[in-house]
Design a protein around this nucleic acid. Sequence first.
DNA 1: AAGATGATCTTGACACCGTTCAGATATGTT
DNA 2: AACATATCTGAACGGTGTCAAGATCATCTT
Lengths: 224, 224
Amino acid sequence: MTETLQPPSASNGEDPAFAAPGAPRRYHHGDLSRALVSAGRRILEREGPDALSLRAVAREAGVSPAAPYHHFKDKSELLEAVAHEGWEELGEAVKEARKRASDAHVALGEIGVAYVSFARQHPALYRIMYRMACDREAMPDGAKTQDSGWTQVESAIIEAGVNPSDERAMMLTQIAAWCTAHGVAEMAGFKEFDGLKAAMGGEQAFIRAVFRHVGIMSGQRAAS
Amino acid sequence: MTETLQPPSASNGEDPAFAAPGAPRRYHHGDLSRALVSAGRRILEREGPDALSLRAVAREAGVSPAAPYHHFKDKSELLEAVAHEGWEELGEAVKEARKRASDAHVALGEIGVAYVSFARQHPALYRIMYRMACDREAMPDGAKTQDSGWTQVESAIIEAGVNPSDERAMMLTQIAAWCTAHGVAEMAGFKEFDGLKAAMGGEQAFIRAVFRHVGIMSGQRAAS
DNA sequence: AAGATGATCTTGACACCGTTCAGATATGTT
DNA sequence: AACATATCTGAACGGTGTCAAGATCATCTT
């Protein structure tokens, strides 16, 4: 703990996200709350979710263990911020997937693949994202409004043929889609499927194939 | 730490699972590893997964914090044992659901509902079960052999019309079923759906409805 | 029967964790 | 220049997983 006495903003010298480009390190840290979130994400990608302690985040940002408490009331509030960033990025990936889909009939499937691909590219982040969503009472502000991922899926469902005025069917389809995507996202990481994934020529092909077989749970015939 | 000096087997005096009925408390504890697993499960049901620390389990079993290390090399090895017990019970629930299903064509759906129901009845336990399964390299011994849940699903898939000699299709259907069930199991606990669940007359009805809408991800038409 | 053996449990310690609080320090305002 | 406020540090508390050393007890050997 002796070398912590350096100027607080020394550990993020080259990152332009922390202070305005021209501003000459204005202040104790500059913009700690943003720095903490990005430090948390860096730890997540580098060392996994178990290494994501509040102290480690503070260490990574170059501040004392108590500093985060001036910007977040809790550890979970910090994680919530990290997760929020993740959900926004996932939302954009979903949006682009929908744009890419030529036929409206397959758009939902493409969205599902995009969802799972994101989760697989950022497994530690996704874990946190989902964990925070689990314990939440309701969806966060701005999740259903605007052009969020949720709304994208909603539109895709309508285009897939569900009657938009049937609120219950809309909701149930939305939920079913999310359930499926989440289930595939988590289980696609299982190591016991590595052999199958390799035999199918990559994880992407594996994911698509699993989606194609999902209908059987609803009593439909097996997919070809 | 002063009242810990009581005889070690004092805290489980009336529980018949720890020592053979006639045996007069044979030994230091009797059968600590089993006692630890059941203590862990008790904590899980009573206080949730976050309260499940190794020390708390030891406390609940009436032994010192280091005692578990003579029976499990790790905390995670203890959790694995707890999870194993859970998977076995879930397997039995699945088995009974399959027996209950009249038509082979709906057996898979019934299995799914049974899976989710179990997860919802033991949410904390299921969380641990799934977490341990995630980090596992392969399925534990005896999961695929004998009449386990996995094998039950396998048979149900065959009866649902998948060609049993097509190994890949069998595997993919199995995985898709598990993904779906897991996704529904976790998301059925979301508080944001409480309103919908109530409007549908209970969680059971909600679960069935979600399963019915799952096929849309594979490009099928919306369910009625 | 007595002593050796090895498994089982306790004690005490270590590093790390989340969290709090009093005090130091820099910023913004008057 | 002096005050007020936001921000950060240092030290502490109770909790955690884990380990090494010692105590205790069932069982095996002689």
